[in-house]
Computed example of a mutant assay.
Amino acid sequence: MSRPIADPDAFIRAETRLRPTALVPEIALHVADEAVPIWHRTEEELGEMGLPPPFWAFAWAGGQALARHVLDHPDTVTGQEVLDFASGSGLVGIAAMKAGAAAVTCADIDPFALSAIALNGAANGVVLRPWGEDLIGRDLGWGTVLAGDICYEKDLAERVYAWLLDLSRRGARVLIGDPGRTYLPKDRLEQLAEYHVPVTRELEDMDIKRTCVWRPRPEG
């Protein structure tokens, strides 16, 4: 049996490589070269610690589209307190800081993601606020809330969307990046932009993923 890993930073550095993100080459991330080896490694070693799969080791399509949109439309975040929800690698939060956000909280319940967020932020010359608690249902006054790839599980998608809709109704700017996941509530969203995102075939079963940026309709 493998010994649980005590040093997340060392594990991330050993299992990933810092390289530019396909749709957002202005930002470099510590990402895995291949999906299968690191997935197996985390199942064997991180699984003993009860941690989820290494979502932080990849630049997912929804996050790439959202990061691109934020960089191309900096008014989305300029001067704002921003939440990057389900942050993973921190890609979207880094884009928000580069686009002029006042501060960015990157929330993820995986402690290894929090390490990846800090490492990736430092690699891109920005300071992020990693947050490891579940924020669903809470409102800490963010001006902009960004969420990429959150609609892959039915119950979670419903909970998250209800919360994001509440934030939108009280005045927060809410943007969702999604590549057509099954549980995206498209009938309750307005499309803002569309991108064709290079992705990892091992994870998505294709090389390019049509991905959109959405916001909640006022009527929800």
Rank of each mutant, 00 (worst) to 15 (best):
K186T: 14
Q191E: 15
A157V: 10
E133I: 01
C212I: 00
V92L: 09
I117N: 02
S89Y: 05
L128D: 10
R173Q: 14
L91H: 08
V31D: 01
Y195V: 02
L51A: 11
H30A: 06
V197L: 10
G180D: 11
V24S: 06
P25I: 02
G100N: 05
P8F: 13
V36W: 08
P25M: 02
T182P: 00
A116L: 11
K154C: 00
D149I: 02
D187W: 01
R201E: 15
H69S: 01
L29C: 07
Q191L: 08
A123W: 04
D166P: 00
G171V: 03
L135P: 01
L167A: 07
V104G: 06
V126T: 02
I94Y: 12
F85G: 02
R19L: 13
Q80I: 00
Q64E: 13
R68H: 13
E204L: 04
T16D: 11
H30K: 06
L71V: 05
V77N: 01
I117V: 15
L156S: 10
M97I: 00
E194M: 11
R215K: 15
G88E: 04
I94P: 04
D155S: 14
N124M: 11
A103L: 08
A22M: 01
V160I: 15
R188V: 05
T78W: 13
I176G: 10
G93D: 11
Y161Q: 02
L46D: 05
A157D: 07
R68Y: 01
A99S: 14
L164E: 08
R19H: 13
G93C: 11
V104P: 08
C212M: 11
I5P: 03
P8M: 12
I117H: 02
A35S: 11
L165W: 10
I94T: 10
T182G: 00
A193I: 04
V92T: 15
K209M: 14
G90R: 09
K186M: 04
A57F: 09
W214V: 00
V70M: 06
S168R: 15
L119Q: 12
Q80D: 15
A122M: 10
T76I: 14
H196W: 12
W214K: 01
G50T: 06
R17W: 00
D75L: 07
A118G: 05
A147H: 03
R217Q: 14
V213T: 12
K209V: 06
I208H: 07
I94M: 10
L175E: 04
D178K: 12
N124T: 13
G50N: 08
L71S: 06
E204S: 14
D108P: 12
L167N: 09
L83E: 02
R217N: 00
T78L: 15
G79R: 11
R170Y: 09
E34L: 14
E219A: 12
Q80L: 13
A67D: 07
G220H: 04
R181K: 08
A96S: 12
G125C: 11
A32W: 10
G137H: 07
R181Y: 08
G141C: 07
I94E: 07
D207Y: 06
L71P: 09
A118N: 02
R41Y: 13
G180C: 08
I27Q: 04
A95P: 07
L175I: 11
D110N: 15
V160W: 01
T21H: 03
A22R: 14
G171K: 03
G50V: 05
L140V: 00
S168N: 11
L146D: 10
P216K: 05
H30L: 13
A172C: 15
A116K: 04
G125F: 14
G180P: 08
G180N: 06
A96K: 08
T21F: 04
